[in-house]
Design a protein around this nucleic acid. Structure first.
Length: 429
RNA sequence: GGAGAGGUGGGUGAGUGGCUGAAACCAACGGUUUGCUAAACCGUCAUAGUGGGAAACUGCUAUCGAGGGUUCGAAUCCCUCCCUCUCCGCCA
């Protein structure tokens, strides 16, 4: 949610910023409703003041045995008017909130203005020595992850589809173990090396939580919902972890706080059939380790840089080629002010696959979820924190890159060294 | 699923129609005292909206789980909903 005062003060800037994001938002409506709202407030509060004062007089009069019936009669009318105006005010505020919830975050000035993926900017890349197929052809035909999965008996998309539908992967044997190893490995690195506190969140949340991080009201179509209980399956652990502190005021020393957590992630991916749907490239359920930070506003951009480095570190430890891209305004998501994507190289696909997205939301989510802190000790006035998160990382795309990069000419897959303590085996054959 | 209890400020917890934005205690913060630590004492100690002011600050309004009702006036009475806890049943 954007700051209403800021919209009042700089409506043109906001309009431009929203346009740059390929979004729309009715700034005029916001300003109109807000003006109307403040008019009503001025009037109704005057009346309430009168009512309070006169009620005191009535109390006093009654105590001393005077007749107060004239004033009581008068206040009946005042109360009725107040009731009407309160209704009108509530309607205004609901309308205003509805409008504000639909406005996207604005991008940071360092984000390049652009319309699509083509305008994203590569920041850096990292290619380990053993990599094949990035610039040169491999000496043998590379199998893609589907072929490898089938050949090695570690992925069974057909049976996954039988159980749940397409896009619900089934891992079997060493594939299941490898998946679990990846998750544990990543969490351990983040908690041991990078200073994140581990949480294991619920995988379903209520609608307040979904509003808090910005999935609702715009992304309704993309979420699985348990209608009987009005609960939603989380699309990312970002939702429960960020909402841990919804409606809270954090102490000075609680900021910054860093959390990492595993969750299964559920996405309906409505309307995306036909693109890149094979195997792991687009699924309805996947596993992800998420990083979430609650930080001091003035440090949030430094925190974004370190967040990206933490994710990169996982890929380096696994020795998987990747590149970091800064998303342009048009490609930056609704809630984000600045986003870096990390893409892993899949040599058989000959494609970069998005495996992580690291974003600074500034105070956009904090404002929606009402997450504040006291910047300067217990007496100081609460301010909104800045929130950030990044996938650290999603295993589905990572698994594709891992299998394809670590395959041998014989069609087996070497397990990266870093995972050996977690798998207990060093090769999948 | 059945039965019951309860939701008040950072915490505990008083408060059944007006003098209660809310006692008291604890925690926290500032200070006094004190060889040091501790103790004692004094003071401060919610949030939001809206207006005035350059600002420090200040007026008003709202808020005792949420919403509605009764009333001149509601933390307090009535209704609906939500949540938490306990016991029983069922189950991993």
């Amino acid at each position: 949610m954007l700051d209403l005062k800021r919209i009042r003060e700089f409506p043109e800037d906001i309009r431009t910023a929203i346009g740059n994001k390929n979004e729309r938002g009715d700034i005029d409506a916001v300003l109109d409703v807000d003006r109307r709202r403040r008019e009503i407030i001025a009037e109704v509060e005057q009346l309430k003041n009168t009512r309070n004062v006169v009620s005191q007089e009535i109390a006093r009069a009654k105590k001393s045995g005077e007749d107060a019936s004239a004033r009581i009669e008068e206040m009946k009318g005042v109360s009725d008017t107040i009731k009407q105006m309160d209704d009108e005010l509530r309607a205004c505020e609901e309308q205003l909130r509805g409008l504000l919830l639909l406005l996207p975050n604005t991008c940071h000035p360092s984000v390049p203005v652009g319309r699509s993926d083509a305008d994203n900017v590569e920041i850096r890349s990292w290619i380990p020595e053993h990599s094949v197929g990035l610039n040169e052809e491999a000496e043998y035909r590379l199998l893609d992850h589907l072929e490898l999965g089938k050949k090695l008996g570690i992925l069974d998309f057909d049976r996954g589809a039988k159980l749940s539908g397409s896009g619900f992967p089934l891992y079997t044997g060493d594939g299941a173990t490898l998946e679990r190893a990846l998750i544990n490995f990543m969490i351990d690195v983040h908690r041991r090396e990078h200073g994140y506190r581990e949480v294991f969140p619920p995988f379903v949340v209520n609608s307040d939580s979904m509003y808090g991080t910005g999935q609702l009201p715009k992304m309704t179509e993309d979420m699985y919902r348990c209608a009987d209980d009005d609960l939603y399956l989380i699309p990312t652990a970002e939702v429960p972890i960020t909402n841990m502190y919804r409606d809270d005021i954090l102490d000075t020393e609680q900021v910054p706080s860093y959390f990492c957590g595993y969750s299964a992630c559920f996405r309906r991916e409505a309307g995306s059939y036909g693109k890149q749907t094979k195997g792991f490239l687009r699924v309805h359920q996947f596993n992800k380790v998420e990083l979430v930070k609650f930080v001091r506003p003035e440090q949030s951009y430094d925190e974004l840089e370190s967040l990206v480095v933490h994710v990169e570190n996982i890929l380096r430890l696994l020795s998987i080629p990747y590149r970091v891209r800064l998303l342009c305004t048009g490609d930056t998501s609704f809630s984000s002010a600045k986003t870096y994507d990390l893409e892993v190289w899949a040599p058989a696909e000959k494609a970069w696959l998005e495996a992580s997205s690291c974003s600074n939301f500034e105070d956009f989510q904090a404002r929606r979820a009402n997450i504040r802190w006291r910047p300067d000790g217990p007496k100081s006035k609460p301010e909104f924190v800045h929130t950030l998160n990044g996938s650290g990382l999603a295993t589905s795309r990572l698994m594709v890159a891992l299998l394809e990069n670590y395959q041998t000419p014989e069609g087996t897959v070497i397990v990266p060294k870093a995972l050996h303590p977690y798998t207990g085996f060093t090769v999948i054959d």
